[in-house]
Amino acid sequence: MNLAPDLNQVQSITLKNAQLKVSILTLGASIQSIYLNGYEHSLVLGSPKLSDYIQGAKYFGAIVGRVANRTNKGHAIIDGKTYQLPPTLPESHHLHGGPTGTGSKNWSVIEQIDDMVQLQTKLADGEMGYPGNMTVDVFYRLLDSTLEMEITATTDKLTICNFAGHSYVNLDGKGSILDHQLSIKANHYLPVNNELIPTGEVTPTAGSAFDFHQLRTIGREDYPGLDTNFCLSLNSNRPVQTVATLKGPITGLTLNYQTTEPGIQVYDGRHIQLDAQSNINQGPLTAYAGLALEAQHWPDATNQSHFPPISLAPEDTYRQITRYVFG
């Protein structure tokens, strides 16, 4: 069975205001590029080739779900019942909603104006093992030098739900993000086992290699490698606020990353490997070419009762707001 979307049906949408020009693909509702007025390079990684978004650039800028991140062996517990979610090969775990999660869907355009687009996709009851028919919308809005992403979802059965935007940022448009400076407002992080599944511990960042309270160069001597969930809150619902700051060493550009979510997965892009033809900026894309900041609930929350819950009932609406504030 061919699970790949028809690339001939994919649309490219351009949003513009005085400060930003952003390209959105309906494939995965993906952010393909972000250009800030006065700079010639995209601030996020993207490819001009749609076929890359099926393989080498899978997840670049996509909205991933219905449950982002890893679910241990695909075992999900919903209302006391165990569901089996398919592994996302080559992993033995369920990752980013499975082989055909929302990042692999060709979303529909619901509304579009110069500085806003609303995209939608529908997930069937039982699709990728999840209960409930789900309608997912994402709104991309330009607000001065800010790109706002709002994700909403509704269901007709009790289910689980945890979406994330998966853009890779490089504020200089070239080089390694290990030279960028990063700060994260997190007092705790989640240790993981050798398959990147949380152990269940919630560990203080203070005094550890994961302490990013102060702006620091990412790849300093004690760099631990980042594919890590930083715990921002134990509460599922928070007002939108700055949770991380990234600064490029060459341009001096900054990104203030804001979200309502209780966690942020930070991934250093160590497995990126694409040739120059797959880069909307110049040159090949190699390990550490971009930093993924993925606002979300904590990974494997369905199996960890002390993590912020990710259940969604028919009477409720899932909502996330995340903002990329450039300066």
Rank of each mutant, 00 (worst) to 15 (best):
T245G: 02
T245Q: 13
L246A: 09
L246I: 01
L246F: 10
K247I: 09
K247E: 07
K247F: 06
K247L: 15
K247R: 14
G248I: 02
G248T: 00
G248P: 00
G248A: 15
G248V: 05
P249I: 04
P249W: 12
P249M: 11
I250W: 03
I250Q: 13
T251A: 08
T251K: 08
T251D: 01
G252Y: 05
L253Q: 07
L253C: 10
T254I: 13
L255D: 02
L255H: 04
L255K: 10
L255P: 05
N256L: 13
N256T: 10
N256C: 13
N256P: 00
Y257S: 03
Y257V: 02
Y257I: 03
Y257R: 09
Q258V: 00
Q258L: 15
Q258M: 12
Q258E: 15
Q258R: 14
T259E: 10
T259G: 10
T259K: 13
T259C: 07
T260Q: 11
T260P: 07
T260V: 14
E261C: 11
E261H: 08
E261D: 11
P262F: 06
P262S: 06
P262Y: 06
P262R: 03
P262H: 10
G263V: 13
G263A: 03
G263M: 03
I264G: 00
I264L: 08
I264N: 06
I264D: 06
Q265I: 07
Q265M: 12
Q265E: 06
Q265Y: 09
V266T: 02
V266N: 01
V266I: 14
V266G: 02
V266Q: 02
V266S: 05
V266C: 11
Y267K: 07
Y267G: 02
Y267A: 05
D268L: 05
D268G: 09
D268F: 04
G269H: 06
G269R: 12
G269V: 13
R270S: 14
R270H: 11
R270A: 14
R270T: 12
H271G: 01
H271A: 09
H271L: 10
H271E: 07
I272C: 00
I272Y: 12
I272N: 00
I272K: 07
Q273M: 12
Q273L: 10
Q273W: 08
Q273D: 11
Q273H: 11
D275F: 06
D275Y: 08
D275T: 04
D275V: 03
A276Q: 14
A276T: 03
A276F: 06
A276V: 04
A276H: 09
A276G: 03
A276W: 08
A276L: 01
A276P: 00
Q277G: 09
S278N: 14
S278L: 09
S278F: 11
S278T: 04
S278M: 09
N279S: 13
N279P: 04
N279Y: 13
N279R: 02
N279I: 08
N279M: 08
